[in-house]
Design a protein around this nucleic acid. Sequence first.
DNA 1: GTCTACCACATTGGATACATTCTTGTCTTT
DNA 2: AAAGACAAGAATGTATCCAATGTGGTAGAC
Lengths: 247, 247
Amino acid sequence: MANVTSKTGRKPHAKKAAAQHGAGLQTAFQQVRELIVHGKLSPGMWIVEADLAQRLGMSRTPVRGALQWLQREGYVIEQKNVSKSRMIVAPLTKEDSSELYAIVGHLEGLAGRRTAQLPKEKRMEIVRQLRKLNTGLKSISRDQTGRAGDIFDLDTTFHSTVVKASAGPRLMALYNAVKPQTERYWRLYASSIINDLHNSVTEHEEIIDAIQEGDPDRVEAALQLNWSNGSQRLGKVIDLFGERGTW
Amino acid sequence: MANVTSKTGRKPHAKKAAAQHGAGLQTAFQQVRELIVHGKLSPGMWIVEADLAQRLGMSRTPVRGALQWLQREGYVIEQKNVSKSRMIVAPLTKEDSSELYAIVGHLEGLAGRRTAQLPKEKRMEIVRQLRKLNTGLKSISRDQTGRAGDIFDLDTTFHSTVVKASAGPRLMALYNAVKPQTERYWRLYASSIINDLHNSVTEHEEIIDAIQEGDPDRVEAALQLNWSNGSQRLGKVIDLFGERGTW
DNA sequence: GTCTACCACATTGGATACATTCTTGTCTTT
DNA sequence: AAAGACAAGAATGTATCCAATGTGGTAGAC
């Protein structure tokens, strides 16, 4: 009865390296997210686990974990009409962008409210950083020289600075889950957003002033206005160029 | 090459039922969440996948998926000091409750803002439902007869009604991910929360009036106030009875 | 010629096997 | 006696295997 193949029976599982130990899920998540954000996986496209696994050179297990993660964050959604779970890349629609921007605006508003209540010295340090970043944006908007990626990085750092200054782990995690999704819309409609950059720069100045003054209500309102206006600017562009992933 | 064991070769994988096909993950998620919310898995407790799998009568695969889900939602967190990912049940702390309530308040405020902008007829329908629910809460608060579970259900339905009325899929998903976490604090400190119920009832009335009037700012402010006050009430109780899962 | 039924295939969900890493306990040495 | 090192065990991460289900295509019948 008792088989003796306890220690020595090892032939079927020969593989290459496995990198580290717990690196697979992380890499899978980042790489698939990258593929989605850069549009290699188009909005509305049907995702096949095995294909992704092969492309990333790993088995389906970590890919599945990554997909569940991406589903929770909103990058992929389930096709609901069928009983079986078919995952598709989340479409980019005007409706969704409006909702997404509103959510980010409110989360950031909450963080900004807390940032405004920090002691004065910390606020001044934040303000200094923000002014520097916004100056960079302003010069780009004046010269029209920066590439879209630079603008996105500066803008992302600007907002991230406001949030990181005061957010606890829970808000930070939520923000990090939601905010990066705006990148999809950014990349797709970037060229048209650049033209409106000066508006955003002006709105940023109001944000900075409000933080310097330490007025929570004003900070929150300014942040929400920035996102609300951004949503409207984006909406116009989407109307022009059409949505992706729905038909 | 071609083996003929396509249909008939079934010996090594004999098991009981497997329920449906894609039911395991759902069940695992709900059950583990239940265990956490009800405190069977205490805050701070170290979670072992295999134990849970055995307890739920399934393999580690669906349990693992459920845990990743629960991690993203905040029910479990990673022990960070070690390199390996050790999952523990998220502790219940005053700090965390404060953050959680603020987030829910802001998300609900956003939804409420949209609800306030619905056409008048729909608003009136909502208002009617809300008044009925709040009347139920008021009578419980007066008679001190309801059990904690009833109060929680009524309160949850109240807030959920406001959100569902106008939230899109994204906001709805986020709300459904975040709001249920307040149940953990509710259950743990429920007995003391009941005493303050009349305050919450009064705040609800303001919410209802604001919706009836169709004033987005007022609705949002009223919702946030309800959650902010709730956070303070909870904070006092936590100070009294201590936190769970930290030492 | 078209519609329906059935079969083969593709894909996902779940289970298990295996390799790696972290922990813990004991033994030895200073 | 205390501290460190080594060994045994436990737990996680990943790969592969099996089952279940939906989908599409083909063939047959009306």
